[in-house]
Design a binder for these strands. Structure first.
Length: 876
RNA sequence: GCCGGGAUGGCGGAAUUGGUAGACGCGCUGGACUCAAAAUCCAGUAUCUGCGAGGAUGUGGGGGUUCGAUUCCCCCUCCCGGCACCA
């Protein structure tokens, strides 16, 4: 055995051994229970970042743990290979996105292998290959024929200078990121997935996912946003014709407080009104400036302008003015809202700004209403009762909604309606690096899906986009085609699909990654789905996870998969964050400096007092601790850590530094601490030689010294807790349990130092047993060092298939326990007592306790609370 | 703005169901070893106070429930994630 710990050597050897053994091949046929462990696949951006390392280490820890528990584990990996960054890189380096992407994949695959991940590489999928996306196109054509996919217009960010559609992240302060031109909203035709048709089911099935974090389910519920309200109309006459302005509200009980209506700038009524109102036309133009991101629209200043048109209140018959409001969105509901300034905070602000009337329609007992300031209770659904509402006066929210909806229905002007906030999913992208939409446009036949035998529609790979418009739309060799129906000249669709589509079904493809006869092999899907454990970033809590759930239901309805949900258990991991450092440049801009180039100075208590740049010794400013990002230059390259300390150290640090679902703060000294611990394990194996054969030693436990039994008890207590923590995915305390076990083992009286009699054997046994527990406990986290030592010390050939340790309950038994003594809940002392002492005895002992006597000062106790096994609290 | 999280020593974090706050690690201080340094090992380390035994305070801030609250309830502040074309 090597005297020193050399991670590079043992890690290379272990990885080679696993590869030769095909150790991580998932068996399609097996008697063992299957465990499908999936980590979100990476976008091949160039090299791994710490977020990947964290994500994949968590997945690998769970995979290895379940393998030791006897499961047939499948842990696949692949590449989410279509996307915007490849186009940006292509433009920057004049390299086609395909070449850039494939190069990145090759490099990152090798990086993943050096982390020692137990991945079945025979199942690798790459979404930008025709073998993958052909099935996406195939499903598209099925759904198109079924009407699940349809076409309508949608509003996008339009860069008038580059004449191209921009992603939200490409709009910076209302301007295009490359051109700097003011961005406009523009309506273009798009294909949509009718996800709203599944809204009810997507909502309901959240209740059938006990293995998902409550937080994620809550976010999805709110996103789907089922509401019970009333859809009703304000009638009006326009050019002698009877028309209706439809709105939707969840607060029909406040309908008597309506003082105006607000409509979106794109609403037909607004367009009509603007015809002979240049001021209004100008305002509508102003509303069309800026991007489409909801966060921007919701935070911008609320503005409006009257249309000059009035509509009739459906119940009172009063005339209600109609305004155009920049905060009303055409894509939400009806594109028009009733405004009740007295009972909606946003309407209140709007009414104050434009001096519109405010009419109270709800009252809460003992509150005073004032139109001067907004008060929380104005919108109170629970306590509010109708006032100034004629026959509805005195009704509570529920009663009022019922009565008002009934009245509206009688007049044929409205009805109760369940509505969802969720909108249909627009998937058309005017981009090159994505999956081509398999539609052919024919003048006579319309939109015709590409027939199966003409799939896939292959994306040409040797294209470098130029940032202006869609490259495919400039390639006649791509778009010129013939209609599959009539054989006439036709034009191929040149939009590609949203890259969320690829990531919505990859989990299913892994079951049969090379299937050439279908999207998924039926047998394989039945064997492997659903995913038992899915792991990924919390930032995907809504969109990706909702789309994948939706796709599973679509595939189920096509008869491709069984079950209603794709992911049984979900673990959302936190971000990796790191300190930031910067210098102010003369123009006031911040120059961000990488933490690796900075020395931090501390005072005598370890508090940071300043930092300097290593290159010039001059001070730098210490910024906050933020998500590792290029923009703040605070990323730490995982490769540098692996090269210097080895994969086991990187993995151990990531698991130890924080629980998986919380953010993880990067710390160079923390990494060194992890390395130091692994080296201590190695040294312990060298100096104590805790051989596997020592587990066969013969001795009599009954004669063993109490201290030896105490040490064994401590190790089993630590392991029991660690095993429990493992089940909770709390790997940071599992790692710390490993440290505690090693600390304990180092304190066990060394048998070779001459402890007399039978204790030598007992001590050797306890050390060997403890060490074997330690190696197995840590093997999912630090697989290389534990595999090497397991084999070298003769515990077995392969720790991968070693049985998970078991707690010896007999070792945990204690005759005496320590109880805490409290007076009025304050710690005042402790007491050693027999483990089965009765309550009366304990009370006696507590009262007699010196510290309690002192507190009592001759008085009597009011009450004594005994918590068995924990404490005695004397109340005085 | 809306939805969802988070806040505990100098730092990361621990505390099973409301029951000893600060496990484990980092950092720091002192010591051993060394010609010296690194590495390693040993001891100490929430704050204030006290020679000491001890005492008081303390889990973002304010209030409440309880014999007892980091944990449960109400209000507030700050930080982070998402908001439909980044992935």
């Amino acid at each position: 055995m090597q005297p020193n710990y050399h991670p590079q050597a043992i890690e290379t050897a272990a990885q080679q051994y696993w590869e030769e053994q095909h150790a991580f091949r998932a068996e399609d046929q097996s008697d063992k229970p299957k465990y499908y462990c999936l980590s979100m696949f990476p976008y091949p951006s160039g090299k791994l970042h710490m977020g990947h390392v964290r994500n994949y280490t968590i997945g690998d820890v769970l995979s290895r743990y379940h393998r030791m528990k006897g499961c047939n584990v499948m842990q696949p990996m692949g590449w989410d290979a279509f996307g915007l960054p490849a186009e940006n890189a292509a433009m920057a380096n004049n390299v086609p996105p395909a070449a850039w992407t494939y190069d990145n994949i090759a490099y990152m695959r090798q990086q993943l292998k050096s982390l020692g991940l137990g991945i079945d590489w025979s199942r690798e999928v790459t979404t930008c290959t025709p073998e993958y996306y052909r099935w996406e196109q195939w499903l598209f054509t099925r759904l198109f024929k079924k009407g699940i996919i349809y076409k309508k217009t949608a509003v996008v960010n339009w860069d008038p200078e580059d004449r191209t559609v921009l992603a939200n992240e490409q709009v910076i302060d209302g301007r295009g990121w490359r051109s700097g031109a003011l961005v406009e909203k523009r309506e273009i035709p798009m294909y949509f997935f009718r996800i709203t048709q599944y809204a009810e089911e997507l909502l309901r099935d959240l209740d059938r996912l006990p293995g998902w974090p409550e937080q994620v389910k809550t976010m999805q519920r709110n996103w789907i946003g089922k509401s019970y309200g009333v859809r009703f109309a304000f009638p009006y006459t326009l050019d002698g014709k009877e028309e209706k302005l439809w709105v939707y509200t969840t607060r029909a009980d406040t309908i008597m407080g309506v003082t105006f209506c607000a409509i979106a700038a794109e609403h037909p009524l607004a367009t009509y009104a603007a015809n002979n109102n240049p001021q209004l036309a100008a305002f509508i133009e102003e509303c069309k400036r800026g991007g489409v991101a909801e966060a921007d629209i919701a935070t911008m200043e609320k503005k409006g302008m009257p249309t000059g048109i009035s509509v009739t209140h459906p119940l009172t018959g009063e005339q209600v003015p109609v305004w155009v409001g920049n905060y009303v969105l055409m894509s939400y509901g009806e594109g028009a809202v009733m405004a009740v300034p007295a009972h909606d905070e946003r309407d209140f602000g709007f009414a104050k700004k434009y001096r519109l009337p405010i009419k109270q329609a709800i009252q809460v007992a003992n509150e005073i209403f004032s139109t001067d300031v907004w008060a929380e209770w104005y919108a109170d659904k629970e306590r509010g009762v109708c006032v100034n509402s004629g026959k509805f006066d005195g009704l509570n929210q529920e009663q009022a909604v019922d009565a008002i909806a009934a009245d509206l229905a009688t007049k044929g002007l409205g009805e109760k309606k369940v509505q969802f906030r969720l909108r249909d999913w627009g998937i058309s992208r005017q981009r090159y690096w994505g999956c081509p939409i398999p539609i052919i446009h024919c003048i006579t036949c319309g939109d015709v899906p590409v027939p199966d035998d003409q799939l896939p529609v292959v994306l040409p790979e040797n294209v470098v986009p130029d940032g202006a418009g869609s490259p495919l739309a400039k390639m006649p060799e791509f778009y010129q085609t013939t209609c599959p129906k009539c054989g006439g000249k036709a034009r191929r669709e040149t939009d590609t699909m949203d890259t969320f589509v690829e990531s919505s079904w990859y989990y299913a493809r892994y079951a049969s990654p090379n299937c050439t006869t279908g999207m998924v092999g039926k047998q394989a899907a039945q064997q492997w789905l659903p995913v038992d454990q899915y792991i990924g970033g919390i930032e995907h809590a809504i969109l990706h996870l909702l789309y994948a759930r939706f796709f599973h239901k679509l595939m189920r309805d096509e008869g491709l998969v069984q079950g209603d949900e794709p992911f049984k258990n979900l673990l959302t991991q936190g971000m990796v964050i790191a300190p930031t450092f910067y210098r102010e440049e003369t123009n006031g801009r911040k120059l961000w400096i990488n933490p690796a180039d900075v020395d931090v100075k501390t005072d005598e208590r370890g508090r940071p007092v300043g930092a300097t740049l290593r290159a010039d010794g001059q001070p730098v400013i210490i910024g906050g601790t933020e998500k590792m990002a290029k923009s703040k230059n605070n990323g730490v390259d995982p490769q540098a850590i692996i090269d210097q300390y080895g994969a086991d150290t990187a993995r151990l640090f990531m698991m130890f530094a924080a629980p998986p679902d919380q953010q993880l703060e990067w710390s160079d000294s923390g990494v060194e601490g992890a390395y130091r611990f692994l080296r201590r394990i190695w040294n312990f194996a060298n100096t104590h030689s805790p051989k596997g054969s020592n587990l066969n030693l013969q001795f009599n436990w009954g004669d063993a010294a109490l201290s030896i039994k105490e040490w064994r008890r401590e190790i089993h207590v630590i392991f029991k807790q660690a095993d429990y923590d493992f089940g909770k995915n709390q790997f940071n305390t599992v790692a710390s349990a490993g440290m505690k076990i090693l600390n304990a083992l180092e304190r066990v009286p060394n048998a070779r130092e001459g402890n007399p009699g039978v204790d030598v054997e007992a001590a050797l046994f306890v050390i060997a047993e403890g060490f074997s527990i330690l190696l197995r406990l840590l093997s999912p986290i630090a697989p290389h060092i534990t595999q090497t030592l397991w084999e070298e010390l003769g515990y077995g050939d392969d720790i991968l298939t070693a049985p998970w340790p078991e707690v010896d309950e007999a070792a945990l038994v204690q005759d005496e326990i320590e109880l805490v003594i409290q007076v009025n809940g304050k710690l005042r002392g402790s007491l050693r007592v027999a483990k089965d002492a009765d309550k009366a005895t304990l009370e006696q002992l507590a009262l007699a306790h010196e510290a309690v006597q002192k507190q009592l000062a001759g008085g009597a106790a009011k009450k004594i609370i005994v918590v068995p096994g924990r404490l005695i609290n004397v109340v005085i």
